[in-house]
Design a protein around this nucleic acid. Structure first.
Length: 479
RNA sequence: GCUCCCAUCGUCUAGCGGUCUAGGACGUCGCCCUCUCACGGCGAAAACAGGGGUUCGAGUCCCCUUGGGAGCGCCA
C-alpha cells in the first residue's frame, strides 16, 4: 500500500518569487509529477507586517509563467490561526508546552550572557516548571514548546542523509506569541500535517528548523513527513544569492527574454543530474526525476549557460510556436510594446515571419530576437550605424547602383533569384561576393550583421529593398 | 562563538573501490564552413583542496586540516 505523494511549495509573500524559490518549486513539482502525486501551494503570510498582496500576485504569476501548476486552491496560513492555537492547547494539556512570562529585556540579556560565555544564544527554560501563580501581574505569556533537553533529534533527510542535532543545542521555541498569534515553526508543522504533506522539499537553510519541527511533530504525536533539504543557489561570485544580494525575481528572467521551458531545464540541471544529459524536455525531467540524484553542494548561477540553453530552445522551437511565444512575451520585453505596435502599423508581421528562421539562429534570447529584427521596423531612409557606414565606400555605392538596376528586373522575387543577380553583379565587377554583400547589408539593415542577405531581401520585399538600396547607391552619372 | 552541511576543470556536473593516463556541458582558444554575425563541425588548454589512514587497490570509505555555506528571533 503506497500512499499518494503530496508535496507543497510554501513561499512567504514578502517579495517576488526569486530564482532559488523557483527551483524549490520546480523540484517539488517535478517530484510530485514523477510520483504521480500532488503539489500543493501554501502562502505563508503569518508575518502581517511584511506580507503584501502584490507579492502574492507576483509569486502566483511567476509560477504560472514558469508552468508550475499546483493542485487545488492555495492555502493561506494566516487564515488557519485558530487551528494553530488549537494544536497548542493540545500540547499545553499534554504537558508538552508551557506559558513563558519572560520579558523581551530578559530574553535579550539571556542572549548576551550566553554569547559572552561562548554558548549558543538560547532561552534558558526559566518558566518550564514554574507555577502559573508566579506569573507577573498583567503580562501576557508566550507559549513555548517543552523540548527535550537530553538526547538528540534525528532528521532522516532524503538529500542530506542522517543529520543528528544534539537536543541541548535546541531551546524551547515559541509556539504562540504573547499576542496569541502562531509562529512560523508551529504553523508549518500543523499545516503540513493537516494538508497531508508526505514530502517536505525545501532549501537547506531550513535544515535546523527541521529538527525543531520534528520536536513539534513528536509533541503532537504526529508522524514526521519525509524531508529533502536541497542545496542553495549562489551568485556568480560565489556569494549567497538572496533577495538582498541581487537575486532576481523570475519576472526578471521573463524580461530578459528567456523561455520558460529553457529556464526550467536550466534550473533542473542545477543540483540535479541524470547522467550527462544536459538538454531535456520537461516530460523527460518528470520521467527521470528522483530525489536521490539531487546533489548536496551549492551551485552558482551561470547566466551564460542559461543563455546558451535558451538559444537551443529557440532554435528548436518551430517558427509558429516561437512567434506565438514572442507575442505573449512582448509586453514584458524592453521595447516590446513599441516593436509590436510598429509591426502592426507597417503590416510587417509577415516579413518578420519570413525572417524568423534566420533571426532565431542568431539570438539567444527573445530580447536579442527583437533586436535582430529591428531592421524590419526601421523606416527609410535608414539610419546607418557608424560601424556599418564604413562599408559604404564610393566604390560600394557604385556597385549598389548597378545592383539596383539589375535587381529591379528580377522576377520572381526569391532568395535564389536574388543570389544569382548579386553574384553576377559582383562577378561582372570583378569583386568577391563579400565586397557587394556587405555594403548591401549596410544599405538594407543599417548594420554590419544580419541574417543571410538574400533572406533579408525576401523578408523586406521588392519595393522596400530597392528603395533602401537606392537610398545608399551612387546617383546615376550624368551623361 | 556554537551547531549542522558541503568540497571533481573558471562554472554546472558524470563518477556510487579496480573499466579514471577522470567523461559531458557552458565559457575560453585554434581550425573548418562562409555574404556578415550566428549556427554547425573538428580540435586544444582546463579539475579529483591538503594531509593522514583503511584496502591488494581510493576521485570513490574513515579521520584531521583548510576553504566555502547555512542556522542559532515572540521573521518566515
Amino acid at each position: 500500500m503506497t500512499e499518494t505523494v503530496v508535496t507543497r511549495f510554501a513561499p512567504s509573500p514578502t517579495g517576488f518569487l526569486h530564482i532559488g524559490g523557483a527551483r524549490t518549486a520546480l523540484f517539488n513539482w517535478l517530484f510530485a509529477k514523477a510520483q504521480g502525486g500532488k503539489m500543493l501551494l501554501r502562502i505563508e503570510d503569518t508575518d502581517r507586517a511584511r506580507s503584501t498582496e502584490a507579492a502574492i500576485a507576483a509569486i502566483l504569476d511567476g509560477l504560472q509563467w514558469l508552468g508550475l501548476d499546483w493542485d487545488g486552491e492555495p492555502t493561506f496560513q494566516f487564515a488557519r490561526a485558530d487551528r494553530h492555537r488549537e494544536a497548542v492547547e493540545q500540547m499545553l494539556a499534554a504537558g508538552r508546552a508551557y506559558r513563558c512570562y519572560a520579558s523581551a529585556e530578559e530574553l535579550e540579556q539571556m542572549r548576551a550572557t550566553a554569547q559572552a560565555e561562548g554558548r549558543p544564544p538560547r532561552y534558558d527554560g526559566r518558566w518550564r516548571d514554574r507555577p502559573a501563580s508566579e506569573a507577573p501581574e498583567g503580562r501576557a505569556p508566550a507559549i513555548r514548546l517543552k523540548a527535550p533537553t537530553e538526547g538528540e533529534t534525528v532528521i532522516d533527510d532524503l538529500v542530506q542523509g542522517r543529520v543528528v542535532i544534539p537536543n541541548k543545542d535546541l531551546d524551547d521555541l515559541v509556539l504562540l506569541r504573547s499576542d496569541g498569534t502562531p509562529t512560523y515553526m508551529l504553523a508549518v508543522v500543523v499545516d503540513d500535517h493537516d494538508m497531508g504533506v508526505t514530502h517536505v522539499i525545501r532549501g537547506v537553510d531550513h535544515l535546523t528548523n527541521a529538527a525543531r519541527q520534528t520536536q513539534i511533530y513528536e509533541a503532537m504525536g504526529w508522524a514526521v513527513p519525509k524531508m529533502a533539504h536541497i542545496p542553495l543557489i549562489h551568485g556568480p561570485d560565489g556569494a549567497k544569492l538572496s533577495k538582498r544580494h541581487g537575486a532576481l525575481g523570475v519576472e526578471a528572467y521573463r524580461e530578459m527574454g528567456f523561455l520558460p521551458a529553457a529556464l526550467r531545464n536550466y534550473l533542473a540541471r542545477l543540483g540535479w543530474s541524470h547522467g550527462d544529459d544536459e538538454i531535456f524536455s520537461t516530460e523527460q525531467a518528470v520521467a527521470w526525476f528522483d530525489i536521490g540524484s539531487v546533489g548536496r553542494s551549492a551551485a552558482r548561477f551561470d547566466l551564460l549557460k542559461l543563455q546558451n540553453l535558451n538559444g537551443h530552445y529557440m532554435r528548436d522551437t518551430p517558427d509558429d510556436e516561437l512567434m506565438a511565444a514572442l507575442k505573449t512575451a512582448l509586453p514584458h520585453l524592453p521595447g516590446g510594446p513599441d516593436f509590436s505596435a510598429r509591426l502592426d502599423a507597417s503590416g510587417r508581421w509577415e516579413a518578420f515571419r519570413l525572417a524568423l528562421p534566420g533571426l532565431k539562429e542568431r539570438a539567444k534570447t527573445l530580447v536579442e530576437l527583437v533586436d535582430g529584427a529591428r531592421f524590419l521596423i526601421d523606416e527609410r531612409p535608414l539610419a546607418v550605424e557608424p560601424a556599418a557606414a564604413g562599408l559604404l565606400t564610393s566604390d560600394a555605392r557604385d556597385l549598389l547602383a548597378r545592383l539596383s538596376e539589375r535587381l529591379s528586373a528580377l522576377e520572381p522575387w526569391t532568395a535564389e533569384g536574388a543570389e544569382a543577380v548579386v553574384r553576377a553583379v559582383a562577378d561582372d565587377a570583378g569583386v568577391k561576393l563579400g565586397a557587394l554583400a556587405q555594403p548591401l547589408r549596410a544599405a538594407l539593415t543599417g548594420r554590419k550583421t544580419s541574417p543571410g542577405i538574400f533572406d533579408v531581401l525576401v523578408a523586406l520585399g521588392r519595393e522596400e529593398s530597392l528603395g533602401r538600396i537606392e537610398d545608399q547607391a551612387s546617383p546615376p552619372r550624368a551623361a
